[in-house]
């Protein structure tokens, strides 16, 4: 049986089911308990699980992320909510230096099974400090995994997988998707990591993205189809581990590739995927891989500037047309 639920409710169902299944799992973060979540993701969880397992923290990201590292080393499985991934920068030493390296530095003695989750990407005129897209910044670090859910189905299925993973998982949600509704089964299911999904099949150009920009990709694919260009839109789902095989198989079929990544272009996830596609599909490509990114500037406040800065359907259409001109 399936029903339509919001992305935020899918996230909550994943956390609640995992907390019912495993008493070592707890939720901690700013406003997660008594306030019911800054974005109502954890609504009702305090009532069900009580204050020992759904724990409000002060605004103290270094403190509570470090606490999670210590707790995970002792065998617990924390879920840490960042109100925004923008605020995770304050906790950089704990989430980048400690969580992903502890297993290695301790020679296999202490792992850190922690899910760090929260809103990533521009929320809507929040300005430079609150609009971080952290995927490229953090994906550089070995030892962590990174998942980006596109719809309610994946929000639930990927988050449950993240909670069961024995490594730190950076789980990047989107404020702009929290109210999106989608089909979610009532039965339990998991979405495995490193398994990309073809969101729209097509034979003319492969378009790869993660999370919210996929909506712009699908919008662009619709518009291009009217001109006879059929895009194959691939949702990578996880950046670490990356399912490059699904992307490569598609590019071998279409011979063209556009990567859409909402973070900045320099040294980015988009650049990495383009490089890997070039390495593996050199003889299959009929043009270089094109990339659509946020513009290489701090996120502006003004509505028109922000819209222009982010990836959008117009830019994706332009990129697809430009690489496939010789098709």
């Amino acid at each position: 049986m399936s029903r339509q639920i919001e992305y935020r409710d899918a996230l909550r169902e994943a956390m609640s089911e995992e907390m019912r299944r495993d008493p070592r799992v707890f939720l901690m973060g700013e406003e997660v308990a008594e306030y019911n979540g800054a974005y109502k993701v954890s609504r009702g969880m305090l009532e069900e699980f009580g204050p020992q397992r759904v724990i409000d923290t002060p605004i103290s990201e270094t403190g509570f992320t470090g606490l999670a590292v210590g707790a995970a080393m002792m065998g617990l499985r924390p879920i840490i909510e960042f109100m925004s991934w923008s605020f995770s920068l304050v906790a950089a030493d704990q989430i980048l230096n400690n969580a992903p390296k502890m297993l290695y530095m301790s020679g296999g003695q202490f792992g850190c099974p922690i899910v760090f989750r929260g809103n990533n990407g521009a929320g809507g005129q929040l300005g430079s400090t609150h609009s971080w897209c952290v995927e490229s910044l953090y994906a550089n670090v070995p030892g962590l995994k990174m998942a980006i859910p596109f719809d309610p189905y994946d929000a639930k299925g990927l988050l449950k997988t993240a909670v069961r993973d024995d490594n730190p998982v950076f789980f990047l949600e989107s404020e702009r998707l929290l109210s999106v509704k989608g089909e979610v089964p009532e039965e339990e299911y998991l979405v495995p990591f490193q398994q990309a999904l073809v969101r729209r099949p097509g034979a003319d150009c492969t378009v790869v993205s993660f999370g919210r920009p996929l909506y712009f990709c699908l919008e662009a694919a619709q518009a291009l189809a009217e001109d006879g260009i059929e895009c194959e839109v691939i949702d990578g789902r996880t950046i670490r581990p990356l399912d490059i095989e699904t992307i490569v198989q598609s590019v071998r079929k279409t011979n063209y590739c556009v990567v859409v990544d909402q973070s900045w272009p320099f040294a980015s996830v988009g650049a990495e995927i383009a490089a890997q596609v070039h390495e593996r599909c050199f003889d299959d490509l009929d043009n270089h891989v094109a990339r659509v990114h946020a513009d290489d500037v701090p996120p502006p406040y003004a509505y028109n500037l922000e819209q222009e800065m982010l990836p959008n359907a117009r830019k994706i259409c332009e990129a697809v047309r430009s690489v496939t001109y010789n098709a």
Binding site: Q52, T62, L67, A68, G70, M73
Partner: peptide, 17 residues
């Protein structure tokens, strides 16, 4: 902060688990 987490985990394991 890790030490706070060690104490948290000991307390949590006793009280919750």
């Amino acid at each position: 902060p890790l030490a706070a987490g060690l104490a948290f985990a000991r307390k949590y394991t006793d009280e919750v688990i």
